[in-house]
Amino acid sequence: MIQVQDIRKAYNKVQALDGISFEVGKGELFGIIGPDGAGKSTLFRILTTLLLPDSGTALVDGLDVVKDYKKIRNRIGYMPGRFSLYQDLTVEENLNFFASLFGTTVEANYDLIKDIFIMLEPFRKRRAGALSGGMKQKLALSCALIHAPKVLFLDEPTTGVDPVSRKEFWEMLAKLKEKGITILVSTPYMDEASLCDRVGLMQDGRIFTIDTPQAITRSFPKDLWEISGEHVYKLLKVLEKFSFTHAVHAFGEVVHLSLPKGGAGSLEIMEYLLENGCGQAEIKRIDAGIEDCFMEYMNEYA
């Protein structure tokens, strides 16, 4: 459904996209995971025909984003980073406007947005500007869906929204996927990766890796230990000096320590911690999460 081949794009001297390639199959929920400034929005704008790439090709539904931009615009739904709604129009007016933009009506595609719109129903007459973040997000999604697009581009739809709305939003995406809509979504939240079929980890205009979230975490190349003690900061400082340490990162109340495969066992670690006054610490082997992997890739590419 989406084929991207070595896309590059520079603004002035900053290389926003530095050779991006990936493919998204029909009906797939594909996530681009990366921090601010990774180039996610630039990528989305190229795919939604709003920007021209400097080089490389990109096809959406088999159509070229440069040559066939008019046809593509009929088939896609786009939700930009900030919820692009008319703040001074009501929920209903926004929806009607975006429907007529695509030459359709709210009624014609009501089935598609029904589940989302039910939650918005009580606020039909309210101006979009007076909605909560979560409601704005739902309205923006409805507006992007109203013409039953084949492909949905959602640029950071969950940023700045409370956890409850985030969760609901991902549940909505899962339902849309069932209806056969291809979805490309970007997010800075590492923990949302597991909700996608496949993800690309992106930073500084490049994609580190593309795979299913499970495959990515499974291929973590180091041994990972979780160490908890009453004093995270001290643990960090101590473990940084451990001779086997590949990397050590704070994860909330615990510390993740990665060591070369087979480098050191729990005994060596405990012994070292004991020697350095952290005898109270508990350690356990854990599987890596997406965040561990992301940092490992950053480390590798640096």
Partner: peptide, 13 residues
């Protein structure tokens, strides 16, 4: 500024 221009441009209008 609102970003709605982006949506308008990405539509077939």
């Amino acid at each position: 500024e609102l970003g709605t221009m982006e949506v308008l441009l990405a539509s077939p209008i």
